[in-house]
Design a protein around this nucleic acid. Structure first.
Lengths: 121, 121
DNA sequence: TGAACATATGAATAGCTGTTCATGTATAAG
DNA sequence: CTTATACATGAACAGCTATTCATATGTTCA
């Protein structure tokens, strides 16, 4: 069942550029893609996670190293590592009692680099 | 006053790689930079704002166009445009009763492109 | 000037998020 | 087997956020 024209262009006010809106609607990526993109950036949108990732640019680290580096509790770091792992941004490696985490994506640096360029303007 | 060695390496557990932690600490950007970076990504971390930005890749649009395109209220869009404006990601242009918004940053596309590459893996 | 339109904004609220605390699980060593 | 260590995890809670609702501001036109 197609939505009606009114459904697609509902707006409290009346000055809508119908053609532009229709064209843009058709060029937009699937709703799900845009949602996933927002979810990815949401993961980057926390300074603790940003710090963890930046630390891992340097080297893989165990949980306790990261906790000491950021002066935060082991539990807090572990929770955040789980978020990063679920987003497939870091991956764990067990060595005895320690879990070593490292970056699992080659795009992160490019994303951060562009972000830095923006905030430096 | 320098913090003590204990202050810098506090961790509930004991296996800390002191040298690595110290080296990494010195290579980390200033706390404020990392905070600002997180704030920037936080702006991208909402699907409504992602959709607005994506729409503006196509063309500048007035508030009502965007509201119609996303089938959301004018007020909701206006609030989000304010967030984007404060982050210096969009800029407004008045034409009569309408406010036209357009992108105000050339890094956004590169950031989104890398993000898309990650979620497509 | 007054009415209609387009947008902005403050208050309120429901839903989400990051940390802490307590506790569970996995590994190593004696 | 027991203990200690390193990490994970569930519950709880405080703080934040995105939307709605009501209303204000700014612009055009008659």
């Amino acid at each position: 069942m197609n939505p009606t024209f009114d459904d697609e262009l509902r707006c409290e006010v009346t000055t809508v550029h119908r053609e532009l809106v229709e064209q843009t609607r058709q060029k937009m990526p699937a709703e799900e893609k845009l949602y996933d993109l927002a979810e990815l950036f949401k993961v980057f949108g926390d300074s603790t996670r940003i710090k963890i990732i930046w630390a891992l640019f340097e080297s893989e680290m165990c949980v306790c190293d990261i906790a000491a580096l950021l002066n935060m509790s082991q539990s807090a770091i572990s929770h955040q590592l789980r978020v990063l792992k679920q987003a497939r941004l870091v991956k764990p490696r067990r060595d005895g009692k320690n879990m070593y985490y490292s970056l699992d994506d080659e795009h992160i640096e490019a994303i951060f680099y562009q972000g830095i360029k923006h905030i430096n303007e």
